[in-house]
Simulated assay, not measured.
Amino acid sequence: MSHTAHIRSHRKPRRNASKIAMRAGVAGGVLGTLAVAGASGSASAAEPVTQTLELPTLTADMAVQVAQSAEVTQQAAANYQLQAERDAAAAKAAKEAKADLADAKKKAEARKKAAEAARKAAAERASRAAERTALSASASTPAAGSGASASVSTGSSTATGSAAAVISFVKAQVGKAYVSGATGPSAYDCSGLVLTAFKQVGISLPRVSQDQSTAGTQVSLSNLQPGDILYWGGAGSAYHVGVYVGDGMFVGAQNPSTGVVERPLSYDPPSGAVRVL
C-alpha cells in the first residue's frame, strides 16, 4: 500500500458534466432574455411614441351648414329685438290711449255739468216767468174779503246789527260766479250764498232752497225788512232764494250767465219771504 493512500485530496470532487451543461443552458437562456428585454427597453426609451389625432376635414357642405346656422342665429336675434320694440310700442300706445280716455271722460263730464247747469238755469227762468205772471195777476186782483191789493214793499228801511252784516256780506259778493253746489268764497249757487251770508252772524241755515224757505217766520212781501230771505216758488218747495237788502233791492246768485247780482224786486218778484233775524 502506498504511503499516500490515506491522505485525502484537497481538490473538490468534479461535478457531473450533464448537470453543469444544463445549468449553463438555463443561465444562458435567462441572460439572453434579459438582453433582449434590455435592448427593447433601450429602443423604447430612445424613440418616444407619438399619437396622431385625425381632425375632421372642413368640407364645403360643413361650411354651408355653419354659415346657415350663423344666419339662423342672427335672424332669431333680430326677431327678438323686433318683438321687444313692438311690445314697447304697444305698451306706449296703451298708456297714451288710457290717458286720452281719461281726458275724454273729464271733458264729457264737464260738458254734462255745463249742460245740466244751463238746463237748470233755463228751467228756473221759465218758472220765475210763470211765477211773475201769477204774482202780477194776483197783485192786480183784490184780496178776498179785504178789497186790498197785494203789493211788494220797496221801502227804504235801514239795516242794523246782524242784518247790516248780512247785507254787507252779500253785496260784497256781487260779480262773483254762479256754480251749482258752491258756497264760496269765489263762487256760489243761490242757497249757498244765503247759507254763507247768515253764517257770518252765527246763524246756521239748511243747505237747499226748499228748506231755507221755511227756516224762519213767514212775512208778507208788503212788510219786508233788510235781511229777510226771499224765495221763489212755494214755501217748502222753493227753487230759488235771495236776500232783501232794502230800498226795493235784493241780492242773489241768479244763474251761470249772470252770477251774483243786485237787482230790483221788479226784475224778478219773489213768491214770499221768511225772517230769521
Rank of each mutant, 00 (worst) to 15 (best):
S2T: 10
H3I: 05
A5V: 07
A5F: 13
H6I: 09
R8G: 09
R14C: 08
R14D: 09
A17R: 15
A17F: 08
S18F: 13
I20Y: 09
A21C: 01
M22Y: 11
R23T: 09
A24M: 12
V26H: 13
G29P: 00
V30H: 02
L31I: 06
A37H: 07
S40E: 10
S42Q: 11
T50K: 12
Q51K: 10
T52R: 12
P56K: 07
D61V: 13
A63K: 14
Q65A: 15
V66W: 03
Q68T: 13
Q68Y: 10
T73K: 15
Q74N: 08
A76N: 13
A78D: 15
Q81L: 15
D87I: 00
A89T: 14
A90I: 15
A91C: 05
A91K: 06
A93W: 13
A93D: 11
K95Y: 12
A97T: 06
A99G: 07
L101T: 12
D103Q: 15
A104E: 14
K107E: 15
A108I: 05
E109F: 13
A110I: 00
K112S: 15
A114F: 02
A114C: 03
A122H: 09
A123I: 06
E124F: 12
A126G: 09
T133L: 13
T133V: 13
L135F: 14
S136H: 09
S140W: 00
P142W: 04
S146Y: 05
G147I: 05
A148N: 12
A150Y: 14
S153D: 10
T154M: 08
A159E: 02
G161N: 08
A164I: 02
K171A: 00
Q173A: 07
G175L: 06
K176R: 08
S180A: 12
T183F: 08
A187C: 00
Y188E: 02
S191N: 05
L195W: 13
T196F: 05
A197D: 07
F198W: 08
F198N: 07
Q200D: 05
Q200V: 06
Q200E: 00
V201F: 02
G202P: 04
I203P: 03
V208N: 15
S209L: 00
S209Y: 05
Q210A: 13
Q212V: 00
Q212H: 06
T214S: 02
G216I: 04
Q218G: 14
V219N: 03
N223G: 11
L224A: 01
Q225I: 01
D228T: 03
L230Q: 03
Y231R: 00
H240G: 01
H240Y: 00
H240P: 04
G242T: 03
G242P: 05
G252W: 04
Q254D: 11
P256E: 04
S271M: 02
G272W: 01
L277Y: 11
